[in-house]
Amino acid sequence: MSVILGPNRYGKAETRLVRVVRDGGVHHLKDINVSSSLSGEMAAVHLTGSNAAVLPTDTQKNTAYAFARKHGVDQIEDFALLLARHFVRSQPTIHHARVEIDEYGWERIGGGHSFVRGGREVRTCVVHHDRDGRTSVVSGLKDLVVLNSTDSEFHGYIVDEYTTLRPTTDRILATAVTAHWRHASPEADFGKSYAEVRQSLLDAFAGTYSLSLQQTLYAMGTRVLESRPEVCEVRMRMPNKHHFLVDLEPFGLDNDNEVFYAADRPYGLIEGSVLREDAPDAAFAWE
């Protein structure tokens, strides 16, 4: 039997980094989580234990901190690009860098230096860069919780001997959206793009009379592609946060779609992608 080394990478996961910019008495806060993964000439470290080609994961962590001080942190996509390009350009044994960043929002609550953790979604990005000059940027968000209290139906599905679900023409539709969108170019106004993609997702969710969560997912992805030319693909993960009507008849009460039980599990999970017909190859971006 012959054995060979397969694809591999290594890195530093979840480097927590908070950057405070002091503009006189007004402070600005950036709170991010940085994960880097590197690959390249790593056969020796796996086969013999030689670390000669390895940039330590601790160094990757320190680079993130140092770059935050030297270059600042504005849009997370730009900071990820800066790190990924540095790792590949500075180390001949590193051929590919992947940098993933989550950003946590804080809202000012008075004065110049007081904040409260925002209840909004988490902003995300993943950047790839290799020594051949290929670069990709995937922006995104997670935990964007949305709900329509009506204008949603579910019926006409397959019924077999195990089906107990009743069809409905008026239900609550709720989900926590995880969305990732691929940019056609690694250069963009990422802040503006993020804000407008987010608004497109919300507008489509609110404006779609839904016969299925899949239909809503497709409408949301389509709205993004129609409104944002810099985006070539959208991938979404949308759990169906079920709301079941409570039977109040034992208490002598009716319940005309007013009182619901919000179940957290099990839940339906809908996943899908929407992309332009001429979108460039996606394999590199989604690794």
Rank of each mutant, 00 (worst) to 15 (best):
R85D: 08
H86F: 07
H86S: 02
F87G: 00
F87W: 02
V88A: 01
R89C: 01
R89M: 02
P92R: 13
P92C: 11
P92N: 12
T93Y: 06
I94R: 10
I94D: 07
I94C: 10
H95S: 04
A97W: 03
A97N: 01
A97C: 04
A97T: 00
R98L: 12
R98E: 11
V99T: 10
V99I: 15
V99G: 09
E100T: 06
E100F: 01
I101P: 13
D102A: 15
E103P: 08
Y104F: 14
G105M: 12
W106I: 04
W106N: 02
W106E: 02
W106M: 01
W106Y: 10
W106S: 03
R108E: 08
G111F: 08
G111Y: 09
H113D: 14
H113L: 10
H113F: 12
S114E: 07
F115Y: 15
F115M: 11
F115D: 10
V116N: 11
R117N: 03
R117S: 04
R117F: 03
G118E: 11
G119R: 15
G119T: 15
R120V: 10
R120D: 13
R120S: 14
R123D: 01
R123F: 00
R123V: 02
T124I: 00
T124A: 02
C125G: 07
C125D: 06
C125I: 09
V126H: 02
H128A: 07
H128V: 04
H128M: 06
H128G: 07
H129W: 09
H129F: 13
D130A: 02
R131P: 10
R131N: 14
G133V: 01
R134N: 11
T135M: 05
S136E: 09
V137T: 03
V138M: 03
V138F: 01
S139T: 05
S139C: 11
S139V: 02
G140T: 07
G140K: 05
G140W: 05
L141R: 05
D143G: 10
D143H: 12
D143M: 07
D143W: 07
L144T: 00
L144P: 01
V145R: 14
V145P: 08
V145Y: 10
V146S: 04
V146Y: 09
V146W: 09
D151V: 04
D151L: 12
S152H: 12
S152G: 15
F154T: 03
F154M: 05
H155W: 12
H155M: 05
G156Y: 08
Y157H: 12
I158D: 04
I158S: 05
V159H: 08
E161T: 10
E161K: 09
T163S: 14
T164A: 15
R166S: 13
R166H: 14
P167N: 13
P167R: 10
P167I: 12
T168P: 03
T169N: 14
D170H: 13
R171G: 15
R171L: 15
R171S: 15
I172C: 13
A174E: 08
A174H: 04
T175Q: 03
T175K: 02
A176D: 06
V177R: 01
T178K: 07
W181N: 03
